[in-house]
Design a protein around this nucleic acid. Sequence first.
DNA 1: TAGTGTCACAACGAAAAGTTGTGACTCGCC
DNA 2: GGCGAGTCACAACTTTTCGTTGTGACACTA
Lengths: 309, 309
Amino acid sequence: MDLDAVRTFVAAADAGQFQEAAVALSITQQAVSKRVAALEKDLGARLFTRTARGARLTVDGQAFLPHARELLRVAERADASVRPGRRALRVDVVNRRIAPAVLLQDFYRRHPEIELDVVTLDADVDGATAAVEAGTVDATFHGVTVAARHLPGAITTARVIDEPHQLLVGPGHPFANARAVMPAQLAGHRIWMPGLAPRTEVAAYYAEFAAVFGLTIDVVGPVFGNEALLAEIADSSALATLVGESSRYLWPDSYDLRRIPVRAPAPVYPLSLIWRRDNPHPALGTLRRYLDTRRVAAPDTGVWLPNWG
Amino acid sequence: MDLDAVRTFVAAADAGQFQEAAVALSITQQAVSKRVAALEKDLGARLFTRTARGARLTVDGQAFLPHARELLRVAERADASVRPGRRALRVDVVNRRIAPAVLLQDFYRRHPEIELDVVTLDADVDGATAAVEAGTVDATFHGVTVAARHLPGAITTARVIDEPHQLLVGPGHPFANARAVMPAQLAGHRIWMPGLAPRTEVAAYYAEFAAVFGLTIDVVGPVFGNEALLAEIADSSALATLVGESSRYLWPDSYDLRRIPVRAPAPVYPLSLIWRRDNPHPALGTLRRYLDTRRVAAPDTGVWLPNWG
DNA sequence: TAGTGTCACAACGAAAAGTTGTGACTCGCC
DNA sequence: GGCGAGTCACAACTTTTCGTTGTGACACTA
């Protein structure tokens, strides 16, 4: 199926005749006739009944028309998603399971009119910041703060998320039935995070947390992906891992995994939005205002923040 | 933008390299390279970074990928809407504003998995029945009953809708503030239905109704479409028209049109679904069951039915 | 019946897209 | 370091597709 043929079909259906559609498309009537005939052959159905006064839709044509329009609409949006200068707002969420991704989904629900592309750059703060500076993405979420880093001039940040982290354990784990745990209680327990890449911001966060409270963060072991990790934890009475409060992990009902809040202090992961001050994309302001309204600042006491937070 | 190029892009993105995508598409690696290059040129953005180990998506490619998949999905559905043998369920509703169309929309809400095409054949009972018999549509709604007409052998009907009709009047009309009116009260009043085609089932219904209760059905006057009709009625203190209870007419807030129930007796328009007994389309049975559950039979007394009802 | 509009078919030339052949480059291994 | 095996890109050639021009069949209208 050829999109030009579909466009021609829609033009002919709107005009009611091939001649006028040809003028609208700046081609000859014969070309329209050919394109429509090719489309009909391709679909295996007649779309128009030709008369001496023009062309009227057949039932098949009538059924096909809305799909054709939808197809052109989607093609338009696909085009707009990358066309320089008019593309959709593009935000890097680092990981599709964590808070920024969840928040962006809600943002999209509230602003369905805003074309939004969620991407994962797989880059560290510097790489993501470079992408923001280069304009390949409009914004990214990272744990950086203005105070903690030297950022290029045009780059701006704003703290937008303070997410408490929870312990994720299986039914056999010692804390499986606890209403909450304190970081100090975790001393000696294994917190398993296979595949946690070294030298990343996330690794630094957990390393600092572990050092302060005497935990063991265990990053060894084969990395079979998140599903395997969840399966292991569900089965184990010793393994646990840390996850963001609003992160979304899906597991089969049979796993019986539990999220146990961590308190006194609650480890909070501070995330900032990073964007370019002179980015003219109109939807960027809307996103920032939305994030402002959703901002829930962590309380001053009872929380633990990394020293860069 | 070429759909084949988009398909190729998706295949390459899934495979992670052009070579494998080429095998999957039964073309050469060079052809894949060409198609992707053409798509990139067309979009004005680079979609892959080429490496010695394959091709990885750029940020643009990553943003484009879901749109590309959606585009192929929509193309698939467009194709399915007319492809003989596997096309969507196709139902003629006669008119998109009346009860069958409203009901079908609800049916689609409850069964979003069923591909449904709503068409308007612009044919009378015989034409629509012929279309059903020929298989160009799977079903149609008309006022016919088995008893009243001789139908071709394979054609089946079932009464599925009994819709009471209401008076639609502007704020200046004598019945504007009535809670209900009786047909007898309408004697002498003008019921305006410009454009009501003569010799149709609908015309016969209104003609019989008018004859029985002494009304004047006025079909003269220029036909400027439904919007113009509504505007006239809103402005007039003499004009009124009849509309189905669940029909949907939209008008600006400023019009202040009112729907006045007609009672004692309530004029009911009986509609049947017409389909071919040997139509194998699986969704047809689902539609019939749905219509059965929604069926609200008119009470035996207090209603007026045409003699073919 | 002549005139004017419709769309379709045929022939031709131009453009596009596929294939084959080849080269540049990267990675891993000896 | 050099070599083999993999990657993708470029060039040349062939085939196919697509658009144009020219023309004809057909229907409605005056």
